[in-house]
Simulated scan of single mutants.
Amino acid sequence: MSRLAQRFAQLKAQNKKALVTYVMAGDPNPHVTVPLIHDMVAAGVDILEIGMPFSDPMADGPVIALAAERALAGGTNTLDAIAMVKQFREKDQQTPVVLMGYLNPVEVIGYDKFVQIAADAGVDGVILVDLPPEEAIKFDDVLKQYNMDQVFLLAPTSTDERIAHVIKQASGFIYYVSLKGVTGAATLDTQSAAERIAKIKAQTDLPVGVGFGISDAASAKAMGAVADAVIVGSAFVKPFATENATDAAVKAVAKVKELRTALDEL
Rank of each mutant, 00 (worst) to 15 (best):
Ser215Arg: 12
Asp149Leu: 00
Thr159Gly: 04
Lys201Gln: 15
Ala186Gln: 14
Phe88Leu: 08
Ala254Ser: 12
Phe139Ala: 05
Ile37Tyr: 05
Val123Thr: 06
Lys113Tyr: 01
Thr261Tyr: 07
Leu79Trp: 03
Ala65Asp: 11
Pro35Trp: 11
Asp56Pro: 07
Ala194Asn: 06
Lys255Tyr: 01
Gln169Cys: 08
Ala186Cys: 02
Gln191Gly: 12
Ala18Pro: 07
Met58Ala: 14
Glu161Ala: 15
Tyr175Leu: 13
Ala119Cys: 08
Gly75Asn: 07
Val85Asn: 07
Lys91Arg: 12
Lys201Ala: 08
Ala229Tyr: 05
Ala71Lys: 08
Glu258Thr: 13
Pro207Asn: 08
Lys255Met: 14
Ile174His: 05
His38Ile: 12
Met148His: 02
Gly61Tyr: 03
Val230Cys: 08
Ala155His: 04
Gln150Glu: 04
Gly184Asn: 12
Thr33Ala: 05
Lys16Glu: 14
Phe8Ile: 05
Ala252Phe: 08
Pro28Val: 10
Val177Asp: 07
Val106Asp: 06
Asp124Gly: 01
Ala119Gly: 03
Val166Thr: 12
Met52Leu: 15
Arg70Met: 07
Val142Ser: 06
Leu99Ala: 10
Met1Arg: 08
Ala67Leu: 03
Ile163Val: 15
Gln203Pro: 02
Ala68Lys: 00
Leu48Cys: 11
Val250Ile: 14
Asp216Phe: 06
Ser2Gly: 04
Lys255Ile: 01
Pro133Cys: 07
Ser192Asn: 10
Gly122Ser: 11
Arg70Ser: 12
Lys199Gln: 14
Ser178Arg: 02
Asp264Ser: 14
Leu99Trp: 00
Pro239Asp: 12
Val45Ile: 11
Arg196Lys: 15
Ala67Trp: 11
Arg196Gln: 15
